[in-house]
Write a protein that binds this DNA or RNA. Structure first.
Length: 770
DNA sequence: CAGTGAGCGAGCTTCCGCTTGACTT
C-alpha cells in the first residue's frame, strides 16, 4: 500500500513531481476541475439561498473513479492544486467528492516545481481555505447567472444559439466600439518638412544626414511658403546636445505577453501559440504556459546568471526580480521560461523551435544589463525663418540585453532608427541638398488583432490566462467577430520639393488601410452589442469585472458572505432581464438606403431570420417585398444603394460551357456557379456580380480535378463503397456513411473484404457505446 | 446540399475557468 497520494491539476506536473518525491509517494492529476454546476435550472437552487447543484461531468467520471480508488489505498492525501481561487476550489471539490477524511488530508501549495519548494510545501501543510473556496463559488455562480439569463434573452430577441457573458460580451464590445470609432474618424491632411543636409568636416569629408521640422504645416499653401523662405536661406548648427539613455529589458513571458510577441514576431494566432506551448510544456522543455506571474524561481535566476556570464561575460548579467503589474493576477505559477536555460534550442518541429527560442531569449534578456544609448540632438537654424530643424541620432554605447532580445510594438509604422550624426558643432555651416514638404494624414485608431485584444482584456482584468484563447474562439464561432485581411485603398498625396532654387510639386500614390488578421465586428455582432449595451450597460461596463473582483476579495478575506453578495446582485439583474424581455423591440438594425429607380419602392437592409438581407418594398404594401441576402464581405452599416440593388440581379446567366449555361447565384453555402445540374462554390476573392465566364470555367475544371484525386479506390463489387481522400486523410465511404481507417492499415492496400470488416467493426463498436 | 424573409411550437442552444485527449469527413 502506497503511503502518500499527491493530487495536482496537470498530468505533466504530476510526472515531474513524482520524480522529486520518489518512493512512498504516488502523484496523480485531477485534470483541472472535477465538478461543475449542473446545466438544469441554472445548476443553482435560487430560492434556497443560491445553493449550487454540482455534478461530475461525464468526461471526468473516469478520473474521479481512479482518484477514489487511489485515495482509498493511501494513508495520507496531499491536495496540491494551485494556490489561487480556482485551485482552492479544486482541492475542496476533491475532498468532497472523494469523501476524504480530514484526519488523513493535507492541503499544500508551491509556486515553483523544484525539489526544495515541494519539500518545503510538504513540511508546511494547511487546511482548505473555505473563504477562498466561497469566493470561487461566488465567481462561478455569478457567471452562470449572467450567462444563462442573457443568452436565452438573445435567442428570443435576436437569433437562436447566440450567447452572452461577463467576459465574451465585453470582448465583443471592444471590437464593435473600435469599429464605430473608425467609421466616424475623419482623416486630416497636413504637411511635414524633411531636409537632407551635407556637412563637411575639418578634413573635407562629406557627411549626409536627415533633419526634420518638429511641427506640422497646415496645408499646401503653408508648405510652399516654408519652402520659398528656405530657397535663399543659410543653414547653421544652433546647438548639439548629447544625452545618455538607458533601456531596460521586459519581464519574462506570461500567457498574455507570450501571445502578443508570438503574434508580432512569429505571426501565430493565440490558439496556435497555446497549443505549441502546450507541447513544449508536456515534453518538459518549458514551465507552465498559463500563468499571470512574472516571477522566476531562485534556481532559474542562478541558471540565467551562469548562462549569461558564460556566453556574454559578467558585465552582461544583472539579476532582477520583476513585480506583476496586472490587477487581477493570482500568481499561482512561475513566469513562462525554459526549464533548462542552458538549452538555447530544442528538438521539435519548426513551430516548437521558434516559440522555444523566443521564450529562451525573453527570459535570458530579462536577467541582463540595461542597454546604454546615447541620443544626440542637433538644432539647425534657418536664416530666414524663426523655426528650427532638428536632427537626431542614436548610438548604442553598450548593447546589454539588446544582444539577445528586443520587444516589438503594435505600431505598424515603426520609428526609423537613426544612426550616428556627423561630428558637427555649434555654428558649423551646412549645405542643403534637398527639402521636401510631404502631405501626411492622421491615422484612424488601430483595429484589434487577437493578441492586442488579449492585452486590452488583461488591462481590464477580464478573463484569465486559461481563457484568453478560448474566448477569442468563442466570439468568432458565434459569428460576432471575424478575423480578416482587407485590401488597402490607394490614396494620392502631394510632395513639394526644393532642390537648389527650384520648387517643384509631384503627386504620389500610397496604399493605406491595408489590414492583416484583424478583428472586425459582423452585423450580428454589432446588433447584439448595441442591444446589450442599451439594456445591460451595468454588465457591459468595462469596470464590471473589476468591481465584482473587489467583492470576491472581501469574500476571500472572510468579510462578506458569498450568498449575500449574489443576493445583492441577482434580484435586480433578474428584474432587468424580465423587463427587457417584456418591453424591448426585436432589434433589426434596419437602414433605409433610398428608392429603387425602377419601381420607386423603398430599398432597405436589415438582419433577417437567416442573416443580413436587402429588401425592396415594404411588407404592408400590396405587392410583396423582394428579398436578397447580403454577400459575406458586405455589411448593413456600409452597403450602398447601388450595391444593394445589384444583389437582386442574381441568379444570372453569364454564358455557356460545353453547351450548357453557367448560372451564378447565392445559396445556403454562399455564392456558387451552377452548370449541368452541379454546383461549384465561388472563392472568397470572386465577386458573383462581376465574375467572368473564364473564371467560372476555371473553377469547374479545378473542382473536377479535385474530385478525381478524391477517389483512392473504387470497387466493382459495390459502387456505393469507396475509399476517399478527406480533410483528415483517407476514409471509407459506404452509401454516404463514413468510416475511419485504423492507423495500422494503409488505405491503398485495403481490399473489398478489408473494408467490409472495418465497417462491421465500427458498427459493433457504436452499438456497444449506446 | 445551393429558391428561404408569415407565425406557431416542439426541442435545442448558453456562461467562465481548471485541465487534456478523443474525434471529426
Amino acid at each position: 500500500m502506497e503511503e502518500n497520494l499527491v493530487i495536482v491539476e496537470s498530468p505533466a506536473k504530476a510526472n515531474t513531481i513524482s520524480n522529486f518525491l520518489g518512493k512512498g509517494f504516488t502523484v496523480k492529476s485531477s485534470f483541472g476541475h472535477i465538478r461543475d454546476l449542473s446545466k438544469d435550472n441554472f445548476g443553482i437552487d435560487i430560492k434556497n439561498n443560491y445553493t449550487p447543484v454540482y455534478i461530475i461531468p461525464d468526461d471526468k467520471k473516469k478520473v474521479v473513479a481512479e482518484l477514489k480508488k487511489s485515495a482509498g489505498e493511501a494513508a495520507t492525501i496531499w491536495l496540491a492544486s494551485d494556490e489561487d481561487r480556482e485551485g482552492e476550489a479544486i482541492a475542496w471539490h476533491l475532498s468532497e467528492v472523494l469523501k476524504l477524511d480530514p484526519e488523513k488530508t493535507q492541503r499544500i501549495v508551491f509556486h515553483e516545481i523544484t525539489k526544495t519548494a515541494i519539500k518545503e510545501a510538504i513540511e508546511n501543510p494547511r487546511e482548505i481555505n473555505r473563504n477562498l473556496v466561497n469566493a470561487q463559488q461566488a465567481r462561478r455562480v455569478l457567471d452562470r447567472l449572467v450567462g444563462f439569463e442573457l443568452s436565452p434573452l438573445l435567442w428570443k430577441k435576436v437569433r437562436p444559439a447566440l450567447s452572452a457573458g461577463r467576459v465574451q460580451s465585453v470582448a465583443v464590445r471592444l471590437i464593435a466600439e473600435r469599429e464605430n470609432e473608425i467609421d466616424s474618424f475623419e482623416s486630416n491632411a497636413f504637411f511635414r518638412i524633411s531636409a537632407q543636409f551635407e556637412f563637411l568636416d575639418e578634413s573635407g569629408n562629406s557627411h549626409k544626414f536627415q533633419a526634420e521640422l518638429p511641427s506640422r504645416l497646415k496645408d499646401r499653401e503653408k508648405a510652399h511658403e516654408f519652402l520659398s523662405a528656405c530657397r535663399s536661406a543659410g543653414f547653421r548648427v544652433l546647438d548639439v546636445t548629447k544625452k545618455p539613455v538607458k533601456k531596460s529589458p521586459a519581464p519574462p513571458f506570461i500567457t498574455s505577453t507570450l501571445q502578443q510577441e508570438a503574434s508580432r514576431k512569429l505571426g501565430f494566432s493565440v490558439a496556435r501559440t497555446m497549443s505549441v506551448a502546450q507541447r513544449l510544456y508536456e515534453s518538459g522543455k518549458i514551465t507552465y504556459m498559463r500563468t499571470d506571474s512574472v516571477n522566476l524561481s531562485k534556481s532559474a535566476l542562478a541558471a540565467a546568471r551562469d548562462v549569461i556570464v558564460e556566453e556574454f561575460g559578467k558585465e552582461y548579467s544583472k539579476t532582477r526580480n520583476f513585480t506583476t503589474r496586472s490587477k487581477g493576477a493570482q500568481e499561482a505559477h512561475e513566469a513562462i521560461r525554459p526549464t533548462y536555460l542552458q538549452n538555447r534550442s530544442v528538438a521539435g518541429n519548426r513551430q516548437e523551435q521558434r516559440l522555444y527560442e523566443l521564450i529562451w531569449k525573453r527570459c535570458l534578456a530579462s536577467q541582463m544589463s540595461e542597454a546604454q544609448l546615447e541620443k544626440t540632438t542637433a538644432r539647425i537654424r534657418i536664416s530666414t525663418l524663426p523655426e528650427h530643424l532638428v536632427a537626431t541620432g542614436e548610438v548604442i554605447r553598450f548593447d546589454g540585453f539588446l544582444k539577445v532580445y528586443m520587444e516589438s510594438t503594435d505600431d505598424e509604422q515603426g520609428e526609423q532608427s537613426s544612426g550616428l550624426l556627423p561630428p558637427m558643432k555649434e555654428n558649423d555651416d551646412l549645405n542643403l541638398l534637398k527639402m521636401e514638404a510631404s502631405e501626411r494624414f492622421n491615422q484612424f485608431p488601430p483595429r484589434y488583432t487577437e493578441a492586442s485584444l488579449v492585452k486590452k482584456m488583461e488591462e481590464l482584468g477580464i478573463g484569465r490566462p486559461s481563457t484568453y484563447a478560448p474566448t477569442i474562439s468563442t466570439i468568432q464561432n458565434r459569428g460576432y467577430v471575424v478575423k480578416e485581411n482587407r485590401e488597402g485603398v490607394e490614396r494620392k498625396y502631394c510632395v513639394c520639393s526644393l532642390v537648389g532654387e527650384d520648387i517643384s510639386e509631384t503627386i504620389r500614390t500610397e496604399v493605406y488601410g491595408k489590414e492583416k488578421s484583424k478583428l472586425f465586428p459582423t452585423d450580428i455582432g454589432q446588433l447584439v452589442n448595441d442591444f446589450l449595451v442599451e439594456y445591460f450597460s451595468n454588465i457591459l461596463d468595462y469596470n464590471f469585472t473589476a468591481s465584482i473582483e473587489k467583492e470576491f476579495d472581501k469574500i476571500a478575506d472572510g468579510k462578506l458572505e458569498w450568498t449575500r453578495m449574489i443576493d445583492k446582485f441577482y434580484p435586480g439583474f433578474h428584474g432587468q432581464v424580465v423587463e427587457t424581455a417584456r418591453t424591448s423591440q426585436r432589434p433589426k438594425g434596419e437602414r433605409i438606403l433610398g428608392a429603387d429607380p425602377g419601381s420607386g419602392r423603398q430599398v432597405s437592409v436589415k438582419i433577417g431570420r437567416f442573416g443580413p438581407m436587402a429588401q425592396i418594398g415594404e411588407a404592408s404594401e400590396e405587392e410583396k417585398p423582394r428579398f436578397a441576402s447580403l454577400l459575406k464581405n458586405q455589411s448593413i452599416k456600409t452597403i450602398t444603394l447601388e450595391e444593394a440593388l445589384s444583389l437582386f440581379k442574381l441568379p444570372r446567366t453569364i454564358g455557356h460551357f460545353e453547351d450548357q449555361e453557367i448560372v451564378i447565384g447565392i445559396g445556403k453555402f454562399g455564392p456558387y456557379a451552377r452548370h449541368a445540374g452541379k454546383f461549384y462554390s465561388l472563392e472568397k476573392s470572386d465577386n458573383p456580380l462581376s465574375i467572368s465566364l473564364e473564371r467560372a470555367i476555371e473553377l469547374i475544371d479545378h473542382k473536377r480535378e479535385q474530385d478525381k484525386n478524391k477517389i483512392i479506390r473504387k470497387f466493382e463489387e459495390n459502387s456505393g463503397l469507396q475509399i476517399l481522400n478527406g480533410k483528415w486523410g483517407p476514409y471509407i465511404s459506404l452509401d454516404k456513411k463514413n468510416f475511419r481507417i485504423p492507423k495500422s492499415k494503409k488505405a491503398e492496400e485495403l481490399g473489398y473484404g478489408d473494408c467490409l470488416e472495418i465497417i462491421e467493426k465500427a458498427k459493433k463498436a457504436k452499438k456497444k457505446k449506446q
